[in-house]
Design a protein around this nucleic acid. Structure first.
Length: 214
DNA sequence: CACCAGGTTGACC
DNA sequence: GGTCAACATGGT
């Protein structure tokens, strides 16, 4: 029986870490930029690139869409994969400028997710991050950390399977989804390494729980 | 020096 | 459906 497992993990993480209030950004468009830049990249480097884009007055779809891609490459180089990221940021900016951010973000959740997935450079996690943190709609974000933590506890699954698990066991509340994903990232970075767990309270508390009650 | 970071894509089976 | 190399810089 694991119908309380997902909520219990949340309470545990919240108790240990406290509220994080993600996503750190001034505007929805800045969230979108951040979701692309942070792919396989430390957030400290993303911050540098975002600051650079702001300093160049490019943190708006209409302005980024018409900037030279070479210039964008220079500004986001510190994030790695800088050529494809620069190209994709420019294309995404053009899309948002053309369609209108408000029009896009006011779409129903599923339509918005599918639309984001149609953009080059936007996969499952990035699409869900945009839906949740930029558009404020309930979609639970799964990432490598989430997959790792759940596997550590004894629950394996692909992206959509894990997302279904979280969304089916949690109330569909945007603030909860936002905070939970943030807590998972912060927790995993510090306590659930790729090779070994360091004093992992989740492991101690929840592993084999479903077996005992099953 | 080796390894990792808040993934995605296109090719392949 | 799943797997894999490629994409690239910066920090430990």
């Amino acid at each position: 029986m694991q119908n309380e497992l997902v909520s219990s993990i949340y309470e545990t993480l919240l108790g240990k870490i406290g509220h994080l209030h993600w996503w750190p950004a001034d505007t929805p468009f800045e969230v979108v930029i951040g979701t692309i830049l942070t792919q396989q990249t430390k957030w400290t480097n993303v911050e540098k690139a975002i600051d650079a884009l702001k300093s160049s007055d490019l943190m708006e779809p209409e302005k980024l869409a018409v900037e030279d891609v070479e210039q964008i490459e220079d500004l986001v180089r510190c994030c790695g994969f800088y050529r494809q990221k620069a190209r994709r940021l420019k294309d995404i900016a053009e899309f948002f400028a053309t369609e209108g951010m408000d029009n896009i973000f006011s779409l129903p959740t599923k339509e918005l997710r599918d639309l984001m997935l149609s953009l080059k450079g936007v996969g499952n996690e990035t699409a869900d991050s945009i839906v949740l943190y930029a558009a404020d709609k309930p979609k639970f974000v799964i990432d490598a950390y989430t997959t790792r933590i759940m596997k550590c506890i004894g629950i394996e699954g692909n992206y959509m399977q894990l997302q279904r698990l979280f969304e089916s066991e949690l109330p569909s509340e945007v603030p909860l989804y936002k905070e939970y994903h943030a807590l998972i990232v912060e927790y995993a970075k510090n306590y659930c390494g790729k090779k070994q767990c360091n004093d992992c309270i989740l492991l101690h508390r929840f592993k084999d729980r479903e077996v005992k009650n099953g």
